[in-house]
Nucleic acid binder design. Structure first.
Lengths: 208, 208
DNA sequence: ACCTGAACACCGTTCAAGT
DNA sequence: ACCTGAACACCGTTCAAGT
């Protein structure tokens, strides 16, 4: 234990990188995501998040109402990043192909960030209780909706109910992502990848 | 507190319906399901399950390795009931219609038992760690697989990879159930019901 | 064989007190 | 304004002891 270091007038000396004063809120959500990635959404404790961030167990309560509120903040971050990933998936100009690309991008993001994904759709947080979370999810969903509208006005798609089609597409993609992450596709000995399933399903659902 | 009753030689006199000696294991899974239904998969504690069953907090450890093991047992029960519900859905003889009926039955069961469903597919239990759970899930899945095979040999369906089609169908139905239970379809203002989505999607995916 | 009682480490949360 | 330290109720789990 080193004592009397030159930085003795700064708080948290010796302890691993204490954030303190400034952006503890963001530090906590980042640390929480790390922990969830290591231990899964369960076995994740607020006390340890605080410990890793170098603050007391009570400190998070200056920034979050309770543990669920922190988890909701992580989920909201996740929806924002998913939203960005979908916006970045501007491949093909053709309406139907664009929808396939969107589905692929969604799935890829989910499989690349299973920890985020589990928090975003898991039962740990009542999404309905967090308006910001609902808005973030809606924003991501709107990318899909607009792609459908665009395809429709291009004549590449004839759908009465764009929202219903969006719901079907979201269901397949979310279902495939969820079953893949949970290992269920593997247990069912399905050799096709979730990407195969998604591409085929979107193609069938948007067939003229 | 009534004392000296005629049943004083039986354990647990006076306390609310103590199960003791016999089928405590089953009593615990039943109580756990009740509690999950009331409070959701989180906010469910082993201690309270024991309390409600009228036994000490240590008693469950005679029947389950730990809390996760109890949750896994509940999930397994869920897959068995889902399996039964699918077997009972023997409506139409026609191959494609039968697949639609199967999807409907799955969705209905999930929406009727959201507590079960969340435990079965939630992150609270590592499904891969519980072989009995995996087997129960596979058994339920096999109903779908056999329906596809039957439709194929009837000529109602031409599919190269039955398991892949099963994966796509499972993805839509699971996805729709999951999004509906989570309130996400509602937040996305999708007016069509999850049943509408599922029927339409299965029809499209099994189109000749 | 099955359950109780007491114990331990740990967690979520609160609150008075410090800077 | 933001954080600490101590406190409280409660939980998961273990283990010796009871019947």
């Amino acid at each position: 234990m080193p004592a009397g270091s030159a930085s003795a007038d700064r708080p948290g000396i010796g302890k691993a990188a204490p954030y303190h004063h400034g952006n503890l809120r963001r530090a906590l959500t980042d640390t929480a995501l790390d922990l969830i990635g290591e231990r899964g959404p369960k076995g994740f404790t607020l006390t340890e998040v605080a410990r890793r961030a170098g603050v007391s167990a009570a400190a998070p309560y200056r920034h979050f109402a309770d543990k669920s509120d922190l988890v909701a903040a992580v989920a909201e971050l996740g929806f924002q990043r998913l939203h960005d990933a979908l916006l970045a998936a501007q491949g093909s100009r053709d309406g139907r192909d664009h929808l396939v690309e969107l589905g692929r991008a969604y799935l890829r993001w989910a499989l690349d960030h299973p920890d985020f994904y589990l928090v975003m759709f898991g039962a740990e947080v009542e999404r309905a209780s967090y308006p910001g979370l609902v808005r973030a999810a809606e924003a991501a969903f709107s990318v899909l909706l607009e792609a459908i509208e665009a395809a429709r006005s291009d004549g590449a798609l004839q759908t009465k109910d764009a929202r219903a089609l969006a719901g079907s597409l979201w269901s397949v993609v979310h279902g495939a992502a969820s079953l893949d992450i949970g290992g269920d596709l593997h247990h069912a000995r399905i050799k096709a990848t979730s990407e195969d399933l998604v591409v085929e399903a979107i193609t069938a659902l948007t067939a003229p």
